[in-house]
Design a protein around this nucleic acid. Structure first.
Length: 576
DNA sequence: CGTGTTTGACCAGCGC
DNA sequence: GCGCTGGTCAAACACG
């Protein structure tokens, strides 16, 4: 039922994405040869394209002018310049209609006069400039569409991370195969272009840039490398929802890509330069991974999924509600009394998709029962609703932070070091983000209780902090090491640095972060995290106190005390 | 009746 | 080896 309800949500979201994609198509079409006849997938552009098309048809009905020569000239350039010409003809025709009448009024009507045709062609060319302006307007429209598209982009980020992880693994030393990564499985993963991934903040600018360089990017970008047999259509913005339909290959079942395996990435990172395996906590090896999913589960739980779940992100949020609302749907599958805490710990698993490995534990803080500690484990292997984006991206980013190689310092607080995220995304990270060294699993703790404290101090980072972090990020963005993900081509480094520089020049911290977060070349993890911080920290981190967008209704956790219904064989509590 | 929650039992890792 | 503890399972139950 929950899945169906979610699917019910997916539809409009998918339609939104489709419309957004169509928006891209509508504009890109005029810059690039994107399936001129592909009207089916561009419903959002139908109004614009039909306009030209119908007008063109009208024109063809009215006359059979030999104006095709001009089109041929354009055709030599690009196919969809035909589209431009189509519109051009239409507009020119419409205007020329009146002009033609003027001409016919003053001059003897010699139909087929080549001179007049040339003059019309000249006017038409002048119209091209006007159409360019019109294009800009369309781009503005696109910007609006893109705004709604942004939420979906974060999903793509996650997907890209997964893809990139696989790519990294493809070049990994053979020793990493022991993690249970099946090369064949990797190769089966459809590759999606990633260059189009932009990030929320600068939606319109992003769209402009994407449109402006669409052709070059699409042709020279990763899409060609990602998919040898790609088509232009395949290079359109990766449809996040198609992710459920095998990347548009028409599979009706969800061939869910393997979740972003932070652990593998971590191990990758550690293999390159960072601490050897002995730095990893015990129980890290898959051999010690306990069973995670019911054996009856239809989908085999590959070891990577098991290992992945070891990475934990704990979010401390002050909330009166029993559970902070993170936009996901959870099903409670257990509750236990934890040692040293009178409050029972509840176990939830994500029910938004069958087989989603994500689980979370919810427990109130023993010291302050108003604080809800939510520990997330794993990564969603399914599209997330917009409401779930902030938390998902934040936790994913935090987990990535864990993977960045920043090991706990002596006092357990996260050493920002080269860790841009720690300070940019999690300002005051020295107090907010900690990595537990003693936990059985590496755990990042995001303490949002301070940020959630009521004003006077808004939960925004100090500009100087962020700018310093950004500058540091620009220095530290070295593709091979960043967050253990070899996500970016070195060629993007200048762009990243430029983005950081721009951001550093920004006076406002948020806008500075937005600059980076909106830069397509900026590392996905960073940008997603920043974006989540900019736009969703409050909403995702429990701002919805009870507002509960779509979370399951959970009865309040018993704030006290012993002998709770959740008694178990470990009811014996030993206060520490 | 379907779905989610509760809760006692079970399992496995870990420390002593 | 044993006990403790965290995590999970699954039958029973509650609810709409």
């Amino acid at each position: 039922m929950m899945e169906s309800s979610y699917l019910g949500k997916r539809k409009p979201v998918g339609a939104e994405r489709e419309a957004a994609a169509a928006g891209f198509q509508a504009v890109v079409l005029r810059c690039d040869a994107a399936a001129a006849g592909d009207n089916a997938g561009a419903r959002g552009a139908v109004s614009v394209r039909d306009f030209f098309k119908k007008a063109e048809e009208r024109r063809e009905e009215e006359e059979e002018a030999p104006a095709g020569g001009a089109r041929d000239d354009r055709l030599s350039i690009d196919k969809d310049d035909l589209t431009i010409n189509m519109g051009l003809h239409v507009v020119g025709r419409r205007k020329s209609g009146s002009e033609e009448s003027i001409v016919s009024d003053g001059v003897s009507s010699e139909v087929g006069d080549h001179r007049e045709t040339k003059a019309e062609l000249a006017r038409a060319k002048s119209e091209l400039e006007r159409l360019n302006e019109e294009n800009k307007q369309l781009k503005n429209m696109l910007g609006r569409v893109t705004t709604s598209y942004n939420s979906l982009q974060t999903q793509v980020v996650t997907l890209m991370q997964q893809r990139s992880t696989h790519r990294v693994l493809a070049g990994a030393p053979p020793g990493h195969e022991q993690l249970g990564v099946d090369p064949a499985e990797r190769s089966d993963q459809p590759q999606l272009p990633r260059q189009f991934i932009g990030f929320g903040g600068g939606a319109a600018d992003e769209a402009m840039r994407a449109v402006g360089s669409a052709d070059a990017v699409l042709r020279a970008g990763d899409c060609s490398a990602a998919s040898p047999s790609h088509t232009d259509a395949a290079c359109m913005p990766p449809p996040p929802m198609d992710y459920c339909t095998a990347g548009g290959k028409g599979k009706d079942v969800m061939p869910l890509p393997p979740p972003f395996d932070h652990h593998r990435v971590l191990e990758m990172g550690s293999s390159s330069e960072d601490p050897p395996p002995h730095h990893l906590p015990q129980g890290w090896l898959p051999s010690k991974v306990p069973k995670f999913l019911p054996a009856k589960g239809p989908e085999p739980v590959v070891p990577e999924a098991a290992t992945m779940r070891k990475a934990r992100v704990s979010v401390r949020a002050r909330s009166e509600a029993a559970m902070i609302s993170d936009g996901c749907q959870w099903r409670k599958y257990g509750q236990k009394m934890a040692k040293g805490n009178p409050c029972p710990r509840a176990y939830y698993r994500c029910t938004m998709a069958a087989g989603c490995p994500v689980r979370k534990q919810v427990q109130r803080c023993a010291e302050d029962t108003t604080v809800v500690i939510t520990t997330y484990e794993g990564n969603h292997n399914h599209p997330l609703p917009p409401a779930a984006m902030p938390m998902a991206s934040t936790t994913a980013a935090a987990a990535s932070m864990l993977l960045s190689g920043s090991m706990p310092s002596a006092d357990g607080s996260l050493m920002a070091g080269s860790n841009f995220l720690a300070r940019a995304v999690l300002p005051c990270s020295s107090n907010v983000a900690t990595i537990s060294a003693s936990a059985p699993f590496p755990t990042v703790t995001l303490d949002l209780t301070q940020q959630q404290a009521p004003p006077p101090t808004p939960p925004r980072p100090d500009p100087s902090q962020l700018q310093a972090a950004l500058a540091e990020a620009a220095r530290s963005v070295q593709p091979p090491q960043l967050f253990g993900q070899k996500l970016y081509d070195p060629s993007t480094l200048p762009a990243v640095q430029a983005a950081a520089a721009d951001a550093g020049a920004a006076t406002d911290t948020v806008s500075a972060a937005a600059v980076i977060a909106s830069d397509p070349n900026f590392p996905a993890v960073l940008a997603a995290a920043i974006k989540s911080y900019i736009g969703g920290s409050s909403s995702g981190s429990g701002g919805g106190g009870g507002g509960g967008s779509s979370g399951t209704t959970v009865p309040p956790l018993p704030v006290s005390s012993g002998g709770d219904s959740g008694r178990d064989d470990n009811t014996r509590e030993q206060d520490s």
